[in-house]
Write a protein that binds this DNA or RNA. Structure first.
Lengths: 254, 254
DNA sequence: GTCTATATCATGATAGAC
DNA sequence: GTCTATCATGATATAGAC
């Protein structure tokens, strides 16, 4: 459908990703979409409302699929706790798979979303907070159940780290490019083996990104706990607890 | 020193962190610093130049300390490879320790830096790229030497993920707060045990952040490799290589 | 070096003809 | 619904008195 609101939504998303929400002007958007300058205010009311609309469309779908995936896992596990790796796949895998499926603008929004997680703008932050509240609560609870011997605070931190690694993995391709370059102008190692049409396709192969990311995240989630946890537990209940923790964290679910 | 340029630098850094670089105006900065509106352009030339100056000050110091730390590690190890965990501590630990030491604005800049890594603004990105080029190259090489059996591409990706987890851990405190909340208005678990003066002090205890982050990062770096790596190697050289890889990744350096 | 005053321009939003 | 024209505002930057 090439209706005006849709044209605006599509091109706004693209420009927001490219230049940032603050820096993108209504004039840029309407020019790119080939519609009149007044159209944004007519159809959406304001720039803010347009922004909200863009995120709402994608996020409600994404988070509903996440909730559905978690429901399926919990149903399949009956009352037993779900494996951490499955929980992570339901949360982060759903994100990447949706972006991959919807070729039209999927990866674009993925990048925008990654950036927006560190957006300082007030209204965006309260909006995202409300949009994420339920999913985060449900997944947090699932992880806590899944790792009963890991202190709750540590789980929250690691969830936080995982969100960061994912957001940045998607948004900040700069550092990856920087890392990949041998140095300025060095041309060793067969410069053009694959088609250089899409600059990022070499590195950002999205079907390989997911397994790469998942292994990293699971490794981080199950890493040994920092010492102050085991120390605190040791003095509370003499020494058995600490062992249980490092086992459950290093080797699997509870 | 309360000189005008310093007043500007300090308050600009603060406001950039709070509202973002794009959204912060020269009027806000000069008003907060108690200097004249024209002072920024007089002392720095333009808003862009002011931004560059702020990042330059902090980043060159940070990255020089990082290089020095790596030099020390490599000298101490003679020609043997350095342990991955030590490399990570030299890179990410130096960042957090600098921020912690410099009470005056250290944590502020830390947050700003975390956000800036996903900044879409063109001139900031090319500036950051040049500023990081040497450190990233040196640390990349160190990690490659440190994990000789891990494919180079995987190391780059994991370095990328680690950068993300760290940047976000610092910048995006929102999701952490969201995760920490039990739900709206629930007040279980002794609401005010420590002084609530600094809203974030409870969660963002920076001395605990470092061990938490380090364990997570090391866990992620040493996680088992995704399957397509071992498969590729298996068909190239029959099966010994795959075992070597998962050992070196799961248990330690090469 | 610091100030006031202002130039110049781009922004988001709106009013009103079609 | 779509257009042109325009408004009010706030941005960066500068000129020139002190």
């Amino acid at each position: 459908m090439q209706t005006t609101p849709n044209l605006i939504l599509r091109h706004a998303e693209l420009l927001f990703t490219q230049f940032g929400v603050e820096a993108t002007t209504l004039r840029q958007i309407t020019a790119a979409a080939g519609v009149n300058l007044a159209a944004v205010n007519y159809h959406f009311g304001s720039k803010e409302a347009l922004i909200r609309e863009i995120f709402k469309r994608r996020l409600t779908q994404l988070n509903q699929e996440r909730l559905a995936a978690l429901d399926r896992l919990e149903k399949a596990a009956a009352s037993r706790p779900v494996k951490p790796a499955k929980i992570l796949d339901a949360f982060f895998g759903t994100l990447l798979r949706i972006a991959q499926k919807d070729k039209q603008g999927g990866p674009t929004f993925l990048k925008l979303l990654g950036r927006t997680h560190t957006e300082p703008s007030e209204f965006i932050r309260v909006f995202l907070a409300s949009e994420y509240e339920e999913v985060l609560r449900r997944y947090k609870e699932a992880l806590i159940k899944s790792l009963p011997d890991v202190p709750r605070e540590e789980i929250l931190w690691r969830f936080h780290f995982m969100l960061g690694a994912t957001a940045y993995a998607i948004a900040g391709t700069d550092s990856l490019k920087l890392l990949a370059h041998e140095g300025p102008k060095e041309t060793q190692e067969a410069p053009s083996r694959s088609k250089p049409k899409d600059q990022e396709s070499d590195l950002m192969q999205i079907d390989r990104l997911l397994p790469r990311l998942m292994n990293f995240l699971v490794g981080g989630l199950r890493a040994p706990l920092p010492e102050f946890n085991t120390q605190a537990l040791r003095q509370a209940q003499p020494r058995q607890a600490a062992l249980r923790i490092s086992r459950s964290v290093n080797q699997g679910r509870g």
